[in-house]
């Protein structure tokens, strides 16, 4: 590669969603906000329509593929994914040690403590059903993590306002919800800043008992609340200065055209929802339908 070619390479342009950046040419950014919402609802319902591992794992693959096809830079979201994977692992471990499911095989059975007067205690009881349930929760949580991540990356506040208003939500409710999502990234930055400032003054959040730690977090809450109140007053003045009122009727400022990509996405995720439903509740019907379809369009 010579110098002229090197200079001609333009850096990728990134734009910010609610929390993270994605490439400017991401196809998901061009989707109609209603379609984005439909995709989230479709995956979210599909993951809870079924208990079958193969289906939930397929949904996980679909959501990961969706993130990749949307050209979301994984390097920017890897910390978030790692943190949420940690959460899913935590859910797995807690359910392993604290839930009781009767299964056909018992792997571990041990009373950590028992109070005879109330006939209650903590019993670690791990069966094949416990393992199945904890693993199911883990995979389901991961599906939800990936689809939430996708939505938060490719959606802007005006998209949410548009989608909620088109779905018939009152303007005040839609505005409050969109403002909350927008405030999350601001408060996250404040949270990290305040925490780092306290650490630099010698406060350690990893030392002491649970009550001591909670008190430290309590002190951290002061600047957070003060910032929140200041923001509420500033936002109020700013939006009132722009003539915002709950009572007046307004049209939507932004318009989103319906593209072929929107129709294709609706069709794909609508089909996923229907297939998962049929696979769970009417598997014979689905198989015979697929059999007939393959009969009409033979593969071999």
């Amino acid at each position: 590669m010579n110098n002229a070619e090197t200079l001609s390479i333009e850096p990728k342009k990134y734009v910010r969603g609610y929390f993270f950046y994605t490439t400017e040419d991401s196809p998901a950014r061009r989707l109609n906000p209603l379609v984005k919402l439909f995709i989230v609802i479709s995956i979210s319902i599909s993951a809870f329509l079924t208990d079958r591992f193969e289906i939930i794992l397929s949904l996980l693959a679909v959501t990961v593929l969706l993130v990749i096809l949307s050209r979301i830079p994984l390097s920017m979201v890897k910390k978030f994914i790692l943190a949420l994977s940690g959460m899913a692992t935590g859910i797995f471990i807690i359910n392993l040690f604290f839930s009781h499911y009767t299964g056909s095989k018992v792997y571990f059975d041990f009373w950590v403590f028992y109070i005879p007067y109330v006939n209650w205690g903590w019993r670690i009881y791990i069966t094949d059903a416990t393992l199945w349930w904890a693993s199911l929760l883990f995979v389901r949580t991961m599906v939800m993590v990936w689809i939430s991540l996708w939505f938060l990356v490719v959606t802007r506040d005006r998209d949410i306002l548009y989608a909620l208003r088109r779905l018939g939500f009152p303007r005040g409710a839609a505005f409050a919800f969109a403002l909350s999502l927008r405030s999350v990234s601001m408060f996250y930055e404040d949270f990290v800043t305040v925490m780092e400032a306290m650490k630099s003054k010698g406060v350690s959040f990893s030392e002491g008992g649970i009550i001591t730690r909670l008190k430290k977090y309590g002190r951290m809450a002061f600047p957070m609340v003060l910032l929140a109140v200041r923001r509420i007053e500033e936002f109020t003045r700013a939006i009132e200065a722009r003539g915002f009122s709950i009572k007046c009727k307004r049209k939507l400022y932004n318009k989103y055209a319906w593209s072929k990509l929107d129709s294709l996405s609706m069709l794909t995720f609508g089909l996923i929802l229907i297939i998962v439903f049929l696979y769970q509740y009417y598997p014979l019907f689905l198989m015979s339908f697929l059999g007939r379809l393959l009969g009409v369009f033979p593969l071999g």
Binding site: S180, S183, V184, I232, E233, I246
Partner: peptide, 19 residues
């Protein structure tokens, strides 16, 4: 103020609680 600071309180407060 009529309703605006209340709606903003719900929105901004929701953001803080969400974090």
């Amino acid at each position: 103020y009529p309703m605006t600071p209340r709606i903003v309180t719900a929105g901004v407060g929701g953001g803080l609680i969400a974090v």
